[in-house]
Amino acid sequence: MRQSYDRGPVEDFGRWREFTAGMWAWVFHKFTGWVLVGYLFTHVAVLSTATVDGATYTATLQGLEELLVVRFLEVGLLAVAVFHIINGVRLLFVDLGVGLEAQDQAFYAALVLTGAITVGSIPTFLGGI
């Protein structure tokens, strides 16, 4: 089914604007998934300072938390995780065959909820800097 020559607008720029809810949900889920798995490796690497000694661990974590960039990245991470969780629940329902006719509304709800939770937690994440 692959193209052996350039189809032009049919295959590239014209496409993404036509994506429907389910397709966007998949794109976001994949993207957030890549971010989370990347973070998982980084996270364990940072926490590995605990194998040196307690003081290094505390100093590293608190040093990182003092950086404003890190705080903003954490807000981003929260947004990514919350979307992945909520859309993940949506996907579990899809896998169980429950409420498939409302899957698009569920995606919009996931977006709104993610936005609300992220905005709502900004004070907590940026507190004490």
Binding site: W26, L91, L100
Partner: peptide, 23 residues
């Protein structure tokens, strides 16, 4: 199948394709 629902959206005969694949 990644449950993108693209097929279900475009089916001119309104077949719930994703639902069938999931089942």
């Amino acid at each position: 199948c990644q449950t993108q629902f693209s097929c279900t959206e475009v089916c001119p005969k309104d077949i719930p394709l994703t639902e069938h694949i999931q089942e």
